[in-house]
Design a binder for these strands. Sequence first.
RNA 1: GCGCCUGUGGCUCAACUGGAUAGAGCAUCUGACUACGGAUCAGAAGGUUGGGGGUUCGAAUCCUCCCAGGCGCACCA
Length: 592
Amino acid sequence: MGKNSPPPLANRLRTSLLHFLVIPYMSKPLHLGLDHFDSQIRNALAKGLGLDAESLKLERPRDEKLGQFAFPCFRFAKEQKANPKELAQKLADSFQVDSITPSATGPFLNFQIDPSALVKRVATDAAQSNYGAGNLSGKVVVEYSSPNIAKPMHVGHLRTTVIGAALSRLAERAGHDVARINHLGDWGSQFGKLVAAWNRWGNEGELENDPIAHLLQLYVRYHEEEKEDETLPADAKLAFQELESGEENETRAIWKRFTEFSLREFNRTFERLGSEFDFVRGESWYEDQLDPLLEWLESTGVLEESDGATIVDLKEHGIKTPCLVKTAHGTTLYATRDLAAAKSRWEEFQFEQALYVVGAEQNLHFQQFTTVLKKAGCEWANRIEHISFGLIRLLEGKLSTREGRVLSLTEVLDRAVELAAEIIEEKNPDLSDKEAVAERVGVGAILFHDLKHQRNKDVVFNWEEVLSFEGDTGPYLQYSHARCCAILRKSEREAPSFDSINLELLSDSPELFVALGRYPQALRESWEKREPMILAQHLLKMASAGNAFYRDKRVLGEKEELESARLCAIDLLRKTLADGLGILGVPTPEEM
RNA sequence: GCGCCUGUGGCUCAACUGGAUAGAGCAUCUGACUACGGAUCAGAAGGUUGGGGGUUCGAAUCCUCCCAGGCGCACCA
């Protein structure tokens, strides 16, 4: 340890206390990795420029060879009426932090971390079980998945389910207390339609045999026949009114059965995808809060009558379409139930943030219902975030249950698992527990494929692409992880811990430790931007750095001290990959 | 018609939210297993960032106008 510049502990405590008081909402990870050097550099630069360290942001050099951090001087040169190149040089000359070498490259100031210090810092931090954890607090509610009862889950539900689950885990790692809510579509006029269809054409045997298929059949038939048969929509409307009446009648009993059957099937899929929920609360859960909600809206004076329906006009908020909260024939709507749910959740959780992982086609709906809340005087409506995502389309067009363009999620998962099984048979026929591994690899491929792109872009579903197991894919990451496991297994001893080895021996591999060291930043940004893709892309970089490491650096059979050090590096890589994949929900088999 | 989103090598996507020579994977071509797992690695080729104009030290990114695609726009969810 150098003797001139490490800041005294008291100073560090004071600055972190300051952070806590001044900027409590900013994430301050407990185990920083490379962020440790980031703040050291910013503090030194801030002093040189007479600015606040928080206002400075470091970037990455174009080329890793130039260093790990870059600071473009243009902006500050302008403020100080100086030449950027000269400022860069001036800052470089006066920069003094242990183990960090600045170099002015034109108007850019680059920083090279001494490999030995870098390895030491990153190895120490990455060995912690909560590497990259933040110190945020407060409740975050995440609503995701939310399939509709009586309909099969299709590929469209994949996105909300895996994005929601990943964001929930990211929020937890950032320090939040998370409530995961599955807002099942178990209410609404569609159930009136379904009951009407069931009463005409329902078949007990088929329902027992394959409930969702039969219910889907009824639903499709309803839409085929409603145009010709006027009594059908009338029956449907009546049935939904009966359901909303709250009475324990025949209609309600049928609806309950449909719900139970559907949930049983959904749970199998949630389990395969590794999705967990703290609350499985359908829209019906808010049933008895609908009237109080309408009364409350009435009391705030936002309700109006229009064509017999009850609406909230939003023109003065720039939204031309009013929000309907009650139909002319007295039933509630989607927006009514979302309003009730939001209010109920606020009262229950006092959330810091409420995330709704719902497709982009509902942008208007979200604008409407959050604006209604604001108009009614709820400042907390600002804490609601619509995490929208682009829709999955088939080449033939948009998915549509009614029009029979469906692609069942189970089918997609099954095909991926089947293909994984074939590949295992070809590459690793002696593997034990092949079926279980195929399941994990197949599902992992589908999951990762969905998470590696920016949320809000539409995707055209392409079998060849989602079933790809090579290149930037889930199986590639799983493979890298499995190879680490293989090396550790073959060493036939416990992986040595970072404080029992000579870390100096690893300073010939700074690239691996840079990748590991940027993991906390990836976690943080991924959460801040609500973008799992950031973590997914970083894991690819880590795996790639890892592949280069065990290609160039022999582990087993080296002198004991060196073997220990490299085993430790492999173990840190293994552990960090597993951690990141776990957050994304991608399984990590030890062999494949 | 109005509103929101998207447009980057043949294909699928990145680019640290205005920074350096626009980076990856697939496909194509060349090379690497008597080597801790070839679901891998090394290399080659491939770009006027949909088009025009503007803002400035600097634009894929910001403003503007076009073009193309997607989604949404009152009693469905």
